[in-house]
Design a binder for these strands. Structure first.
Length: 734
RNA sequence: GCGUCUUUAGCUCAGUGGUAGAGCGUUCCGUUCACAUCGGAAAGGCCGUAGGUUCGAUCCCUACAAGACGCACCA
């Protein structure tokens, strides 16, 4: 009897040692599994690319949830004899990392602009290297059986090549264009962001009604109104039927009289306010559309720092928040203020990362055209390429209702703004040269893998949206653009991707786009979405609430197996869940239960040679059948990704059938010396079967016990075969 | 405005076309040997509301209510 079994199960003593054992075996790497004969060279393939954690810091509990789920899938399929690859990596997370390091520098009293691009990037690299080390350590603690020999990074050399290759191809195909369009400018982060990086916040503000000539107009943003020389009303609005479209009137406005033009368009809702509005095409999406429609003039009012331009005359140079009240005061003095509603609730667009209030602006940026027909893809657009595989069922989203959500999003998709005015990221592979030294205007443009030959070329200083590179993640990690890379051939399309539903659009959709377009293949067959993990009160984990829980601390106290079970049992796909330490405690008790049951079985079967084909008495036979039936059931459920049910069933069977009934019954038999062989064989066989089936969920303790079992020529449990009783393929006990 | 999800025991959640389950919690009883990180037992739910389909609905359909979320708009 191993002395360790005389004490309660101690995960701390076990986990590090066991992980090392796994790592040294090399079995995380499917090639090693084949080389060592535990996997057949032509076995089916199962592959998952780890959603790369942002290289901005440490992993939180949500990651632990994701890692537990994926490791469970991976271990199950590895035990099914498949060529199984789980590939790790980290994401450079452009804006997130850039702003994080910027903040760190600020604390040191350093400004980004002062130290320059090169020095800044050095600092970021240093920071990221540390974060990545921490992340790897954490993933190992959870027991993640990731193939570390294939570890990648979205910003490393190979991925950089992939990104440039993709950009050039899209550029050459006319899918990437540069244009002056309405974009979301973040004055705080000093960069453009995509629609998906906006977070709307409800804020109480003021809503002003001003006198504008013969009309009354409403606005929440008086500071944008300087250039408003178009007044819009609904064509059917009888109140204004005397005014004609295109009619010009002179009105007294902020800085004196201006000539205003009447525009009749249904964009102005009759029910809203007075039914009349003025427009600011440079700083509003809808106004921009109207301006395009009627070929109206557009004037910039606010600069990129959120300050008013000379058009504001006496207010020029003022920040918008300061200017707002002063402008209202001036209008008041001129008798143009009709009313002010103090309780107006507005949804303010803010930048996800910096928190800055988005100022829509017309700017020259790079975009991906999602509607252009692509000859090489049967004239389908990127939008269609995104819809098709999901519609046709080639990609299955679990839970299914997210497919609807996905379609909805794709159908409403606008061109994707991919340029960012930050330094950290993939620099846009485009170079400009001005032929005329006097104007300094870019008149030559070159897109390529490397800088063009000749003098005077300057690379576009902008970097790409982080999702541009992560969109290529399933194949850039496997060797693309080398279409003959063995990993790409073997492991793509990947089997499953397992992110939270909140990045269905940002990431999943972009991966389908990139994969469909660049390699004409789906990126994954199944999207298994998980929900958001919240605290016990149902609040999101966040820094401001200071309700964070460190998964490593939980593991230190209760063990990785207990944490993993608590993250799996009863948490269905796409469902949010509350983290409760009680649940972890319950499964750490379960760990101990397994431990002690193993001790009992080992103790009572130590001098017993388990026959290959044991003869069971009647009740043991029934018990044996019961477990076989359970196995058939859970194997099916595992293949259907219902591991949240399987884990619970195994828990229940182990505790309330194996421990409470089978073990108790065996005690009686051994004591009375009746059918002892049957009892002992059953104990041993059921324990081994249960260890195998529990292994994907609780890898450490099951492996630890497995290591002490008296079985000849046994391998690591992680590469043992998942039991299939239907085929009557039994182990070879002593 | 368009759309999605949730509503089951005190709490957190599974689940099934034939009048319900788990974990934790509560109460009681027990336990010298695999395990006090234990065993046995009990209490506790007209499965959000109202209709419909059905021999029969918690499960399917419709409406409603409450809560959460997504998208668009917000002059």
């Amino acid at each position: 009897m191993d002395a360790r079994f005389l004490k309660p199960y101690n995960p701390k003593e076990t986990e590090g040692k066991i992980y090392q054992l796994w790592e040294e075996s090399g079995f995380f790497n499917p090639d090693v599994c084949i080389a060592k004969g535990v996997t057949k060279p032509k076995a089916d393939v199962f592959s998952i690319i780890l959603p790369p954690p942002n290289a901005t810091g440490v992993l939180h509990l949500g990651h632990a949830l994701e890692d537990s789920m994926q490791d469970t899938m991976i271990r199950y399929n590895r035990m099914q004899g498949k060529r199984t690859l789980w590939l790790p990596g980290t994401d450079h997370a452009a804006i997130a990392t850039d702003s994080k390091v910027t903040k760190i520098l600020e604390k040191e009293g350093l400004k980004k602009k002062d130290i320059g691009r090169e020095k800044f990037l050095e600092r970021v690299d240093e920071f990221v290297a540390n974060s990545r080390k921490t992340i790897v350590k954490q993933l190992k603690k959870v027991g993640a059986s990731l193939d570390w020999s294939r570890e990648t990074f979205t910003l490393d050399e190979k991925r950089n090549l992939a990104v440039r290759t993709a950009f050039k191809k899209m550029y050459d195909d006319g899918l990437i264009y540069r244009g002056n369009r309405m974009v979301n400018w973040d004055p705080k982060g000093q960069t453009v962001i995509s629609d998906d990086e906006i977070v709307y916040e409800e804020r109480k503000g003021k809503f002003y009604t001003f006198k504008y000539g013969p009309f009354e107009i409403g606005t929440a943003r008086p500071e944008t109104k300087f250039g408003d020389k178009y007044v819009v009303m609904h064509p059917d609005d009888k109140r204004y039927s005397k005014w004609k479209h295109g009619e010009k009137i002179t009105v007294e406005w902020i800085n004196g009289p201006i000539e205003a033009t009447i525009i009749k368009d249904p964009a102005s809702e009759m029910e809203f306010g007075t039914g009349v509005m003025t427009i600011t095409p440079w700083h509003s999406h809808i106004d921009f559309q109207l301006a395009e429609k009627y070929k109206l003039e557009k004037e910039q009012i606010i600069d990129q720092y959120g300050k008013l331009l000379p058009i504001a005359k006496e207010f020029a140079g003022m920040k918008i928040t300061d200017a707002r009240e002063k402008i209202v005061e001036k209008l008041k003095a001129k008798g143009l203020v009709i009313s002010i509603d103090e309780n107006y609730v507005n949804r303010v667009a803010t930048a996800e990362r910096s928190g800055g209030i988005i100022e829509p602006q017309i700017m020259l940026q790079w975009f991906v055209d999602v509607n252009k027909k692509i000859p090489a893809r049967n004239d389908k657009s990127l939008k269609e390429l995104m819809l098709e595989p999901v519609q046709e069922g080639k990609i299955k989203i679990i839970p299914k209702h997210f497919e609807k959500v996905y379609f909805n999003w794709v159908l409403n998709l606008h061109d994707w703004c991919i340029s960012r005015q930050i330094w950290y990221g993939h620099q846009i592979p485009v170079w400009y040269r001005s032929t005329s030294l006097t104007t300094g205007k870019e008149s030559e443009i070159y897109c390529g893998m490397e800088a063009p030959k000749g003098d005077g070329w300057e690379q576009d200083p902008d970097t790409l949206d982080t999702w541009f590179s992560s969109g290529m993640w399933t194949f850039s990690t496997l060797g693309w653009p080398d279409m003959n890379a063995p990993d790409l051939k073997n492991f793509h399309p990947t089997s499953v991707i397992n992110p939270g539903y909140e990045i269905l659009f940002m990431w999943i959709a972009r991966m389908i786009l990139m994969s469909q377009y660049l390699i004409n293949e789906i990126p994954f067959k199944t999207v298994y979405l998980h929900g958001i993990l919240r605290d016990a009160k149902g609040q999101k984990f966040s820094k401001s609430l200071n309700n964070g829980v460190d998964p490593i601390e939980i593991i230190e106290e209760y063990g990785a197996d207990a944490l993993r079970m608590s993250m799996i049992v009863g948490i269905g796909p796409g469902a949010d869940s509350k983290f409760d330490i009680q649940k972890v405690k319950a499964y750490s008790k379960f760990s101990n239960k397994i431990w002690n049951a193993a001790r009992f079985v080992l103790d009572n079967t130590k001098d017993f040679a388990v026959p290959l084909d044991p003869v069971y008495d009647e009740e043991d036979k029934a018990t044996d059948e019961e477990l076989k039936n359970l196995l058939t059931e859970i194997t099916k459920e595992m293949d259907e990704y219902k591991f949240y049910i399987v884990a619970e069933k195994l828990y229940h069977y182990f505790w309330h059938t194996f421990a409470d009934i089978t073990i108790e019954r065996s005690k009686k038999k051994i004591l009375e010396n009746k059918n002892v062989d049957s009892a002992k064989a059953l104990l041993f066989n059921q324990l081994t079967t249960l260890l195998k089936t529990l292994h994907p969920f609780m890898p450490f303790i099951t492996e630890e016990i497995w290591q002490t079992l008296p079985i000849k020529n046994k391998n690591l449990l992680m590469v043992e075969k998942w039991p299939h009783f239907a085929k009557a393929s039994r182990d070879k006990p002593l």
